[in-house]
Design a protein around this nucleic acid. Structure first.
Ligand SMILES: [Mn+2]
Ligand SMILES: [Mn+2]
Ligand SMILES: [Zn+2]
Ligand SMILES: [Zn+2]
Lengths: 129, 129
DNA sequence: ATGAGTTTGACAATCATTCTCATTTAGGTT
DNA sequence: AACCTAAATGAGAATGATTGTCAAACTCAT
């Protein structure tokens, strides 16, 4: 029972590199298309697996759009939330210590053992108007 | 171009009635199974359409679970958010005026025209522990 | 009761995501 | 450098929630 290990592969590097160049939340399909268009040969399934793995370790963020599709983004490493444009998915990171505290308090009051929370604000960015 | 009108049908009443008896967030598939098990004959597509219609008018609430599936619930009519059990989907409504204000402020500062926001807290309820 | 516009439902079609599994690769060991 | 083996990959099939189709059934204002 050896500990889990993530091997460094060409594909994983390619995905990470692409993510580093994208500022908006993007779907696995979008990331895959981008990779292909840049000449990187990476299978679609691998893109899915890589994004999910990165999200699980907290290396990148995930959220669901209105259609339930998963969107990924390489955000800053500290805890934060998002302001997302519903037209172009442009994203601005936001933080709110006061809200974090409120969240903890509420859950405790209701007898829940908190596992996480979601705070996303949606709207139309200046550009899209 | 007459204004939209929602006709009162047996199926729509059945869906609304069922929702009134459920306290947890449920998927269209679950609602459909419940209807069938109670002898109500309603097509699956109709359940989907009805839930979506109700959600659009704001009559019921929607959220996405980790798998991206849409879950519905007949909540109170006032603005609120949710504390959801990740095991059984038991839901507690919560409200937070301070958070609402913060949300507005943030969006305005960033030049976004707000269209909505999502605030859900997840955890394990007392029962599921 | 009538008729135009809605709604329904059985079933097909979508389509994002997952699964399979034969083949390739990373990275440690001789 | 050659070897080994678990981990990773990818092409394609499979899954499954959700949506589309369209003829038949229904609602409701007249
Ligand atoms: Mn937070
Ligand atoms: Mn709110
Ligand atoms: Zn935008
Ligand atoms: Zn529970």
């Amino acid at each position: 029972m050896v500990a889990e290990q993530l091997k460094s592969t060409r594909q994983r590097k390619a995905v990470s590199n692409i993510l580093a160049t994208i500022t908006k939340f993007s779907s696995a399909q979008e990331v895959h298309k981008l990779l292909i268009s840049r000449g990187e040969k990476v299978g679609l399934a691998t893109v899915y697996r890589t994004l999910q793995a990165l999200a699980e370790t907290g290396a990148i963020d995930v959220l669901r759009n209105d259609d339930g599709e998963a969107l990924y983004r390489a955000c800053s490493t500290d805890h934060h939330h998002h302001l997302v444009c519903t037209k172009c998915n442009k994203t601005t990171e936001i933080s709110a210590p006061e809200v974090e505290i409120w969240t903890e308090k509420i859950a405790r009051e209701q007898g829940y053992l908190i596992s996480g929370h979601t705070i996303e604000v949606f709207g139309t960015c200046a550009n899209c108007r």
